[in-house]
Amino acid sequence: MADLMVLVAHDRDRRAFAELYAWFAPRVKGFLIRRGLDAQRAEEVTQEAMLTVWRKADRFDRRQASVATWIFTIARNRSIDELRREKRPEIELDDPTLVGDGLAQPAETAYAAGQEAERLKAAIGTLPEEQARLLHMAFFEDKSHSAIAESEDLPLGTVKSRLRLALSKLRAALGPVH
C-alpha cells in the first residue's frame, strides 16, 4: 500500500491510485455511514476524502503512519467538519514549540509503520470483548467516552479504565521495533 502511495505521490500514477481507491473508498464510505452520514452524503464525502488522498499524496510519510492510518485521519477530519461543523486543532510536527522529536518514536526502517499496523491489528483482535467494543464505539459511532458511558449505562470511571486497559495492551503489542 505504501508503495502505491509513493507511486501516486511521485508519478501521479492513476493505476496505483485506482488500487488504493478500490480498497479504501468503500471502507471509508462504510466508516462515514456508521458515523451517521446518510449513504449519499457518505459517498460525496468519500469522494472528497479520496480527492485529498490524491492531492496531498506527497504529505504521506510512510515512516510515520501506514496508508490506512493516513486515510483514516483524512476521513475522520472530514467527518468532524461534516457532522459538527467544527474545525480540528491539529498537532503540527514542525511546530517550533514542540517538546521532543516531531516523530515521537522514529521508525527504524521505512517499513516499520506498516509492520506496526499488522501487529496492532492482531492486538486489537485479542482485546477482551468489552474493551474492543468501546474502541469501536469511539471510532465508529462518533461517541465520546461520556456518551458511551451514557448509552452503555456504565459508570464513567469504568469506561475510562477499560479504555486505559485497551491502550496499554495495544502499546505493549507494539513495543520497540527490533
Binding site: K29, T69, H136, F139
Partner: peptide, 17 residues
C-alpha cells in the same frame, strides 16, 4: 500516534460499502 494507527487498523476492518 498509537490511537491514529488504531483508527487505521479499524478502518481496514470496516465492512466495505
Amino acid at each position: 500516534r498509537l490511537l491514529d494507527a488504531t483508527g487505521g487498523a479499524l478502518l481496514e476492518d470496516q465492512a466495505p460499502v
